[in-house]
Nucleic acid binder design. Sequence first.
DNA 1: GTCTATAATCAGATAGAC
DNA 2: GTCTATCTGATTATAGAC
Lengths: 206, 206
Amino acid sequence: MSTNSVVKVSFKEQMLQAREDAIVRTVNRLLAEKGFEAMTVDEVAADVGIAKASLYKHFPSKEDLAAAAMVRVMRRAQDFLSAVPADAAPLDKLKTVARWTIEVQLAGEMPSLPSQNSTLRATLIANRDYMDGLMDLSDRLGGWIEAAQKEGTLNPRLPAIAVLYTLFARACDPVLGFLKAGGQHTDAQIAELVLSTCFDGLNARV
Amino acid sequence: MSTNSVVKVSFKEQMLQAREDAIVRTVNRLLAEKGFEAMTVDEVAADVGIAKASLYKHFPSKEDLAAAAMVRVMRRAQDFLSAVPADAAPLDKLKTVARWTIEVQLAGEMPSLPSQNSTLRATLIANRDYMDGLMDLSDRLGGWIEAAQKEGTLNPRLPAIAVLYTLFARACDPVLGFLKAGGQHTDAQIAELVLSTCFDGLNARV
DNA sequence: GTCTATAATCAGATAGAC
DNA sequence: GTCTATCTGATTATAGAC
């Protein structure tokens, strides 16, 4: 093997990786725009600029395309968590992550999947990268939740799992879309409103 | 026209109404179970026990079937609102309605529609009964929201529209399904948890 | 690996007899 | 109005040449 051939292979692999990345980005965008059912594989292929058959060489099914997009957003979330200052207060960490989730959705970059589709669920559960990422996220957020509850800043009477789900649910909160459609508020205002209702609730503060 | 023929017509109309009601109930249940996309018209017809072509004599499209289910649940909501004691505190009225919404969903009776589907949106907006019901609900809830804010029991810094959307969003809160799937809580406990996070927030009470 | 062309299937909607 | 049988279009997935 000459050095040249090694470089060539590496280059090829880079190209392959770049193409797959382009595919996943497109899928991510389309899932955010129209959801899983409304997104067609033809559309993905057309947007990426390749033939549909080529797409199926990279990903074996539409479900796997969606899973790849979920892995991508999960990686982004993991990166964000890692960048949160370790010495911040636990409650502030949670708020920062919730705000990030909301901002990603407002930016139209949050893929949305139907939670009922069973074949999609099966594909996600079978996806090692997805499950590992989900576990990692849950563990780290769970740690912050328990810390905030011990500290007394987060309601200790709420089960940690309920808090975790409530935070995850901000990633697909329809209130964001409603308020955005209303056109009466900026994205920043919407984010603060939803963040406030999430942590402070609807009640007046005492 | 003999009296007999009049009775006959009335009887026929009753039968027709009963059949349509059976259809809408089935659609409501299937929409709650699997959502709009996963529900097929074949399935609806089979469950009701009539031919698909007969279904299309009653409702011109799948979208109209879904709209009829939404009108039905809206009517139920209107009836519930009317039954709320007029002399109750505004905040309690809102909590009661939120709890009802949550309970309907937990009971598997809340139809869920994709908010992105544009043809479905068009059908809903064109449906007079649906729009009238939605307006009526929004008006009455809006009145309670403003009253609660004036009273100082509901956060006055939140736009009323944001509060309204937040309450509506409880009708499709994925947290309910997550907690239910976890199997660690009863329906009543889940309802109280979600209701608490909605009104009190995640923060510890001061 | 990428393409064109096509298979295979499924679901919404309709024709036409009764 | 209800039925059986069918149409139509859309969509996932694949075959086979290059």
